[in-house]
Computed example of a mutant assay.
Amino acid sequence: MRLKVFRNKPFVIGKNPFEQTALYPSIDEFTQQLTGAITFPTTFQGERQRHAWERLISYIEFSDSPSAFNKAAAYAEGYAHALVDSGQINISPDRDLLIIATVDAWRCTRTYSNT
C-alpha cells in the first residue's frame, strides 16, 4: 500500500490501483492531539487553564457549521497565544505548528449536512 495525497486529502492506494481507502483520523484522535499540545502545571491555575483549553476544544468538536468551526478554532488558537503572551507557557513553534496543523487537518475531514 502507498500513501498518496489528492486534493489535500490523504488516501491509501492498495494492491488494486482503483481501490482507495481514506486515512482520516477519528474525532477522538484530533481532540487528543489538541489536548496534549499544551502541558499545564499541576496547580490550581494550571487546572483552570487546562479546563478552559478542553472546553475550547469541545467547541471545535461540536461545531455544526464551517463558520462555527472556524470561530471555535480561532478562539482556541487565540487562547494558546494569550497563554504565551501572558508568560503562562513558553514559546514553542513546534506546539504552535501542531495546533495549526491539527486544526487544518480536522477542518479537511469535516462534513456538514445541508439540513
Results as ranks from 00 to 15, higher is better:
residue 3 L to R: 11
residue 8 N to V: 03
residue 12 V to P: 00
residue 12 V to Y: 10
residue 14 G to Y: 13
residue 15 K to H: 09
residue 15 K to A: 15
residue 19 E to M: 04
residue 19 E to R: 13
residue 21 T to N: 13
residue 22 A to F: 15
residue 23 L to V: 10
residue 23 L to F: 08
residue 24 Y to G: 05
residue 25 P to Y: 08
residue 27 I to T: 15
residue 28 D to W: 10
residue 31 T to G: 01
residue 31 T to M: 12
residue 32 Q to M: 10
residue 33 Q to E: 06
residue 34 L to M: 06
residue 37 A to W: 03
residue 39 T to W: 08
residue 39 T to L: 08
residue 40 F to E: 05
residue 40 F to Q: 04
residue 41 P to N: 11
residue 43 T to P: 06
residue 45 Q to T: 10
residue 47 E to V: 06
residue 49 Q to I: 03
residue 51 H to I: 09
residue 53 W to F: 11
residue 53 W to A: 02
residue 55 R to F: 11
residue 56 L to C: 00
residue 56 L to T: 00
residue 56 L to N: 06
residue 59 Y to E: 07
residue 61 E to C: 04
residue 64 D to Q: 15
residue 65 S to Q: 07
residue 66 P to Q: 06
residue 66 P to L: 02
residue 67 S to Q: 12
residue 70 N to Y: 04
residue 73 A to K: 02
residue 74 A to Q: 06
residue 79 Y to W: 12
residue 81 H to E: 08
residue 85 D to I: 03
residue 87 G to K: 03
residue 88 Q to K: 12
residue 88 Q to T: 11
residue 89 I to G: 02
residue 90 N to H: 14
residue 90 N to W: 06
residue 93 P to Q: 06
residue 93 P to Y: 00
residue 96 D to Y: 04
residue 96 D to S: 07
residue 98 L to R: 09
residue 99 I to D: 03
residue 102 T to R: 01
residue 104 D to F: 09
residue 110 R to E: 05
residue 112 Y to F: 15
residue 114 N to T: 12
residue 115 T to S: 14
